[in-house]
């Protein structure tokens, strides 16, 4: 498990490089991906939760950390969350589904397909939840600022 977390860390850094992330946030970005993947793999393999729940929790923790890192390093949130989300993407069930379809095993293939789409939905729900909560904070801050210097900036 430790080896896979370590390699998830390296893979996230490689993704950061692929997407041309600024060099000084490569390591924090890798940390985001590694933590998200660690939560996922611990819940799934260590505690035996379902794949969907593990993905959901992993995404939530990952998204929260990337919101915090975005505040700390003064970078857009996507710099952390896009490479970080990738270790969780359900590539394996997707591949298996396609492979079973090619072998005319539609029953098993459909099962894998549903699993892949449920995993993707769980990730989506995690991102949706955290980004909407983050927007709440942002909007309240903006409203406070607008109330404070009403017409001050405008010439």
């Amino acid at each position: 498990m430790l080896i896979s977390i370590l390699f998830a860390f390296i893979a996230t850094i490689a993704f950061g490089k692929l997407f041309n992330t600024p060099r000084r946030v490569l390591i924090p970005g890798g940390l985001v991906g590694a933590i998200g993947f660690a939560i996922y793999i611990y819940l799934k393999d260590g505690l035996g939760y379902s794949s969907m729940f593990s993905n959901f929790m992993g995404t939530i923790i990952l998204a929260v950390i990337s919101e915090f890192f975005a505040r700390i390093f003064k970078e857009p949130v996507t710099v952390f969350s896009i490479p970080g989300i990738i270790p969780l993407v359900p590539g394996l069930p997707l591949y298996r589904a396609m492979n079973f379809f090619m072998l005319n095993a539609y029953n098993v293939g459909m099962e894998k397909m549903v699993q892949a789409s449920l995993d993707a939905t769980a990730i989506a729900l995690g991102i949706l939840l955290i980004s909407s909560i983050a927007r709440l904070f942002k909007t309240s801050k903006e409203m406070a600022m607008q109330a404070k210097n009403k017409g001050a900036i405008k010439p």
């Binding site: 893979a11 490089k17 692929l18 270790p87």
Partner: peptide, 16 residues
């Protein structure tokens, strides 16, 4: 981009 995508893919193979 070639090396970084290759490295990312290779690391995922190990993760699996």
């Amino acid at each position: 981009e070639t090396i970084s995508s290759g490295l990312a893919a290779a690391c995922f193979a190990v993760v699996l």
